[in-house]
Simulated scan of single mutants.
Amino acid sequence: FGNLIPLDEEGHPVDESLTVEVEMGRLNVGRAPSQVLDRRLDEVITLMDTATAVATDAAGRLVFTVDGELKTIDSPLENLAIYTALMTTGTIPGVTDLPGTAFDYMVDGQLTAADLEGSAVFLAAATDKTGVFTTDEIAYIDAFLGIQTETIGSVTYSDIDYSTFDYDRQDAYGEVTVEVLVQQTDGSWVPTVVSIYDEVFGGVPAAESGTLEAYTMAAEDARMVVNFIHEYEVPVSELEASSH
């Protein structure tokens, strides 16, 4: 987890130049009472129990089919609740089965590498769409949420094992497409199917493995995709009005 920063008797850093300010944005909700996330997790559990199908959108957020309607889990609180559950116990409590087999890792009752891999998207969907993830931000929120923590003296930190985590941007998004509004040369906006890999990342490859830095890259890439979808899902009428 790196080197601990020396503190004085009052708990202040001896050398403040060694510290880095962390902007938490929406993730500050992680400091709220646990009942806040518990309530939102209950709402997700209700959807899971009644869903007849489950899939993901281009960013990897969960999409449930309930009574013939698609319901995307886009609430930051609900995504943070899912993230916390997966990273703490490796399962969504009270849910023992989901349609199909692709999401069995979420209900298998054990913490596995699949939970770690899947959780990055949920953390991304919980944060500010326009912020930029840092390793410090993720380490801080994990510690605050009590995820896999260790304590040395008065310092409590999250000690997650990322050694099995692998991320490759092209593997994750190379074949992913999404229909968004694309501005034409005449100024109009037309629904168009585009490549996430090309439009969001410019076709630039990136890969990391085995570290918090690798996990941060995965979460940041997912955040960028969420932001892209959010920006270009806006109705044409609103986009045209804002351009005048």
Rank of each mutant, 00 (worst) to 15 (best):
F1T: 12
Y83A: 08
P6G: 04
E213I: 05
K129F: 11
F228K: 01
T52W: 07
V176F: 03
F144H: 15
I141K: 00
G202P: 02
D67N: 14
D15Q: 13
V132N: 13
M48C: 14
A102W: 14
T84Q: 14
G109Q: 11
E213Q: 10
N227R: 08
Y167R: 01
A120C: 10
V155M: 12
V234F: 05
A241D: 13
G25R: 06
E233A: 12
M24Y: 02
G2S: 15
F103H: 10
Y173K: 07
A51M: 09
V190F: 12
T101G: 15
E208S: 08
V36R: 10
A222I: 02
L239F: 04
E43C: 11
V66T: 08
V234A: 11
V29I: 14
A172C: 06
A124S: 05
I73R: 01
A214C: 02
I5W: 07
L145W: 01
L80T: 03
T134H: 01
A125K: 03
Y167S: 03
G60N: 01
G25Q: 09
A241E: 13
Y232W: 13
I196T: 00
G131N: 10
A114N: 12
G202H: 02
G11A: 08
S119T: 08
W189D: 05
E220D: 11
D166Q: 15
E238D: 13
T101Q: 15
R31Y: 13
E9Q: 15
T72V: 14
V95K: 08
L4G: 10
A55L: 11
P99N: 12
F122A: 00
V14R: 11
D49I: 07
A81Q: 03
T96L: 14
Y162D: 00
G68S: 10
P99Y: 09
T52V: 12
I229H: 00
G203Q: 08
D8T: 07
V36N: 06
T96H: 15
D74R: 07
N28R: 14
E179M: 04
S158I: 01
D136G: 08
V44T: 01
R40L: 11
A125R: 05
L37R: 01
E199A: 07
V95Q: 06
E238R: 10
V182P: 02
L27W: 04
V226Q: 01
V95A: 11
G153Y: 07
V54P: 03
S163Q: 09
R39L: 13
T101K: 15
T177V: 07
D74Y: 04
L7D: 10
L145F: 06
T46A: 14
L47N: 09
E23P: 09
F133C: 07
V234Q: 11
Y232D: 04
D168K: 04
